[in-house]
Design a protein around this nucleic acid. Sequence first.
DNA 1: GCCGTTTTCGGCCCGACTGTTTTCAGTCG
Length: 580
Amino acid sequence: MKNADMAGIFEQMADFLEIRGENPFKIRAYRRAAQVIEHLPREVATMLAEGEDLKALPGIGEAIASKMAELVRTGHLVAWETLRDSLPEGLSTLLEIPGIGPKTAYRLATELGISSVDELEQAILEGKVAHLFRLGDRTAQNILHSIRSMRRKDQRIPLGQALPIVEEILSALRPLPGVRNLVPAGSLRRFRETLGDIDLMGTADNPEAIIRSFVSLPQVREVLAQGPTKASVILSGGLQADLRMVEHEAFGSLLQYFTGSRQHNIALRTRMQKKGLKLSEYGITDTVTDRLEKFSTEEAFYARLGLQYIPPEIREDRGEIDLAEKKAIPRLVERSDIRGDLHVHTNWSDGAASLEDMARAAKALGYQYLAITDHSGGLGIAGGLNEERLLKQMQAIRQLDERLEGIRLLAGIEVNILADGRLDLPDGILSRLDVVVASVHSALNQSEAKMTRRILKALENPHVDILAHPTCRLIGQREPIAVDLEAVFQAAAQHRKILEINSMPDRLDLQDISIYRARELGVLLAIDTDAHRPEHFDLVRFGIGMARRGWCRPAHILNCRPLEEVLSYLKRDEASRRTG
DNA sequence: GCCGTTTTCGGCCCGACTGTTTTCAGTCG
């Protein structure tokens, strides 16, 4: 049983209990547990096998810990099955419709016998829903509307698709007269890999005018709601975007509130409640004097709570509040820490730009070094390099490197890991390169055991330096390969290999919780772009976002180190392999 | 169901909006 499945079951437990009108705090406990499990950096099954006490996890007590153990041991949860069987069928499906909560779902199921979205649609059209007590025609039409818009769009979209849209909107609104602040909040600001909607926050002298401009942007397909300080719209891609404007003085608490995460805010408010402080988007209220204090910046807001500033990417209620109290939040990696890129392509293989163009683009960014790592040729990847062409390219790289001032070019390769774990270039030529990036591009459907052996074998090769996009996932398109990541991390730590954080927005691979775990195990990481054209260098911000979500400091990232240290790491690595 | 520098029992985050209502339940973020 994987963590994601287990989290799903506890989430459903919460839904079922809510439908049955159980204690709301019990329900919340199950939801919290589901969140915690979903974001664990290790599999629960592994933790149990190693004799760890699940009750040590936040939000997990006696009852839920034993249910988790039951799931791992038997693959079943009797309590969940009993609950499910006690309720009408199809309730979970109805709950997925926005605007339908547990109460409404239960009444639709029991009073009208509805068990699917199609049946619900039919019932609305026949006017049955509008006749239920406390549900009028208006509500019925709204439900119908959400059913139809739900069918139109896929739920969450990748960060990389959303960000350009957001930036377009921001650059249209920011120059308007009177605008003082305008920024994204929500999961976008926290750099979550997918988004359900877009939240924008702002302050302006004339908020209503900004709202009006927002709803009349060309990207807006439909206006869901529009008031003097808030509007919700559907963009042409089907994505929902909300804009909220507040007074300048309250911007800090607004931004904090809507950046979330929900779990972080709940933890924060619970804690401050005990100190007599009530937190909201308007500010902080002293519950004794009932006086509201406003904050124009997030920094001031956290400071008033006696906390160090907490970067948005780690606001997930995973211990950051305790650390902020002790002023011990780590200094997370930033873009300005990045000194080079160790995985890029050129038109020698499937890239779009020449060696020189890529090199100059990297230099323009102030990078100290750039590794050229085109594809190896064995597997039909467009223009992959065979041994002969690789030798020619090495020569071209060395020549260009001599000619170019201010940046060091490293000769490398992205070599395929074949189905049996061998590489598709011989050791002889790999040993002459500055850096060897290895990755899986074929036979993606292997069993977990086979795939794990395959990758471990590649990591045992003394010439391999970096394992690129370790799970091979494409967000929303291709599932990650089946692989025992814990074993990969341990092998990487043992052989002192580097794991990649691939910045391509549709990859983001490793993902945040894996980065967290790899770092914990002492694995060195590299934030690479896998750039295929100069503009791709900018994508590094996505990799940085992931690394920050994994609590990485610059010390955890190889390409935050200066050239000499990178070279000596790669070389020392080789020396240690020879002796070992 | 979880949790504890007020507590092993008695609490548990906060506010807005909507639609249906003459005071509020349900849903959402």
